[in-house]
Amino acid sequence: MDNNKTPLIEVRNLNLSFGSFHALKNIDLKLYGGELIGLVGDNGAGKTTLINVMSGVYAPTSGEVCFAGRKVEKFHPKQAIEFGIETIQQSVGLCDNLSIARNFFLGREPVKRILGIPFLDFKAMRKASNDVVHTFGLRDNVSVDDEVATLSGGERQSVKIGRAVAFKNRVIIMDEPTNHLSVREREHVNELAQQLKEQGLLVIYITHDVYQVHRLADRVVIMENGAKVADVRKDEMSADDLEQIIRDGGRNCTDAA
């Protein structure tokens, strides 16, 4: 990795507390474009909390976050989305009561102005979402006018990933993207993650599965109890070593970072 470049996302000395609960502890992290980062750790290790800070859902208690060298002053998902960070999460991202097309463009709806009044451009919404969603593996009999409530878990994931790819993003965060997916769907998602990385995007891939991430990622960051316990390039360590670190709760690897 060319460390002279400006990191796309840099986190410095980040702390986050919810009351007395210290959810993130002194996290330092530099992430670059064209990297596929595996973020692993046990349940409750703070992976999702960390990406929630990056995607603007939580504001840190102390420390700073920089996007392409510029310090983030206000934490709101809108800012993160405008910078080009797209987060694909397990349980959020799609509103069941809206159609696929409406979900696809939620928050950044294309408009056609009639007398200066912004009306939704339904034709553009249908066309763009239809093209993308069907290349990402939705069955032919699914219409983009269908409510998301009628989709299966895999179909929902396809819509989210398709959406992430369709908008010109710089960072794609995938939070457990292959949960609830069939083997074939899982391979498809992993291939997509690789492709996105090769296009120069920063892909952050969150999972429990150390072996999967070791195959996929360029660099693996391990978290434990809200702290970063390891940050290694894939060729520096085997999957078994990584698993050992997680099992030890990060006790024997202070020098690994």
Binding site: P77, V92, G93, L94, L106, G107
Partner: peptide, 13 residues
């Protein structure tokens, strides 16, 4: 969207 799923709406900005 806010009424259907406020969390998802938030995540879309």
């Amino acid at each position: 969207a806010v009424g259907g799923d406020a969390k998802s709406a938030t995540s879309r900005g």
